[in-house]
Design a protein around this nucleic acid. Structure first.
Lengths: 156, 156
DNA sequence: TATGAAACCTGATATCT
DNA sequence: AGATATCAGGTTTCATA
């Protein structure tokens, strides 16, 4: 998480590969970027230390694990008081179905991504966290009907 | 990608671990779930074949790779003609800055996540793809001011 | 039929030039 | 930075319940 030197072409090529498949062996990476395994290894470690690579994770199919209802929820808060905003955000940590929370500009304040088991459990979730007690004035559910493109990759 | 048997507790525990850190050694996984490395290995392979685990990827910090402007774009299309919808979605594939595209219910049709270098490059992107030629009636940019919680993990 | 122990072998890491 | 040696850890086999 130290200060980062500018990424060069080699770094970017390695990142493109690892963002597609983090299990790619160093020997294959080296071949594809025309370098050596040792050099690739050093670059990767450097980028991990610099916080360029945040972590390596397994991506799971929500439907296959019983979360077949996915929703973007646009939330409008009652008060912009920092303590109340913080309280709202922290209340999401306990909620397994809330995968992400972004603070956004515009008419809404937050955009959440939720993976729920079904409509009943989603409804219960909304009753639990989108309350005026929790500093929420209003919320709008945008149900995801199709995942046309869901990448985590930032192509460089 | 075959038909999937029901996931048991062991599978779910393994998924929770791999969604946090896909580099966790099998020996450590085995210890934490009170099983053996061989069994954990077999379960993981099974879930990969069943499409429960989609892939393993490196997550990259957008800011650290020069994409410091992140935007959710709500897009409303002109026509619901399937061919035109498909054409719009396919036009996004070429765009490196467009990370995901969800088809949603409500007043808008699509929600895109974009990681752009800066406002200038984002503006150029909007001129390129959010055009009436591309079946777009209107779009609304929701700039991300803070990533309060950005997970890929579906806690089981 | 699924598990755990142990052998085996690939590939990650450290050292040296 | 690249080549080599070492060692950790992933994979296969086999025995067992």
């Amino acid at each position: 998480m130290t200060e980062q030197h500018q990424l060069d072409k080699l770094d970017r090529q390695i990142l493109n590969i690892l963002q597609d498949d983090a299990t790619t062996p160093l020997a294959e990476i080296a071949e594809r970027v025309h370098s050596s395994p040792a050099t690739c290894q050093r670059r990767i470690r450097q980028m991990q230390n610099d916080g360029v690579i945040l972590k390596q994770v397994a991506l799971v199919n929500p439907t296959a694990v019983g979360r077949s209802l996915s929703v973007f929820v646009a939330v409008e808060v009652e008060s912009q008081n920092p303590m109340l905003l913080d309280k709202f955000v922290r209340s999401l940590d306990k909620e397994n179905d809330v995968v992400s929370c972004y603070e956004i500009s515009g008419e809404h304040d937050y955009l959440l991504l939720v993976h729920a088991e079904n409509m009943t459990s989603y409804h219960q979730l909304t009753r639990r966290i989108f309350t005026s007690d929790n500093n929420v004035r209003a919320f709008k559910s945008q149900f995801i009907m199709d995942f046309n493109k869901v990448e985590t990759k930032i192509t460089l």
